[in-house]
């Protein structure tokens, strides 16, 4: 039988890979995909734990996760699209209007 720790390790790997995608890729779409991967890791963790403990709470958590993710992704994607529309780019480097302006500071 699969020990829980193995599932957890795989889930953690997924989480970490998603994290790496978020951190490494500079395209907003990739970043959103990376977030999905991270959440998949979470989902795997919850499912495996649900199996381990033998109750349905884990699955409820995953379902909630999916729902919420759907909502989030919808809004986020619209925003990415808007960004692409406005800035003609969907890369994070293009989205740096808001920043600390230490060099140009006067006084």
């Amino acid at each position: 039988m699969i020990p829980l720790s193995h599932s957890l390790a795989i889930a953690a790997l997924l989480f970490v890979l998603g994290l790496a995608v978020v951190l490494l890729r500079r395209e907003l779409l990739f970043i959103l995909i990376g977030l999905e991967v991270m959440l998949n890791g979470v989902a795997l963790t919850a499912t495996a734990a649900g199996q381990y403990w033998g109750n349905a709470d884990g699955q409820v958590l995953v379902i909630m996760l999916m729902t919420v993710t759907a909502a989030e992704v919808a809004v986020a994607l619209i925003l990415v699209w808007l960004a692409f529309d406005h800035y003609r780019a969907a890369r994070v480097e293009a989205l740096t209007q808001l920043r600390e302006e230490t060099e140009r500071r006067t006084s």
């Binding site: 978020v22 979470v42 734990a49 958590l61 989030e72 986020a76």
Partner: peptide, 28 residues
């Protein structure tokens, strides 16, 4: 406006992933 929205959306989801991971581990 859009930049702010995207930044918050992405980063909040990112943080929510941590939060959820924590929830899942707590459950585990």
């Amino acid at each position: 406006a859009i930049e702010g929205g995207i930044k918050y959306a992405v980063l909040a989801s990112f943080a929510a992933a941590f939060f959820l991971y924590g929830v899942a581990l707590a459950y585990a």
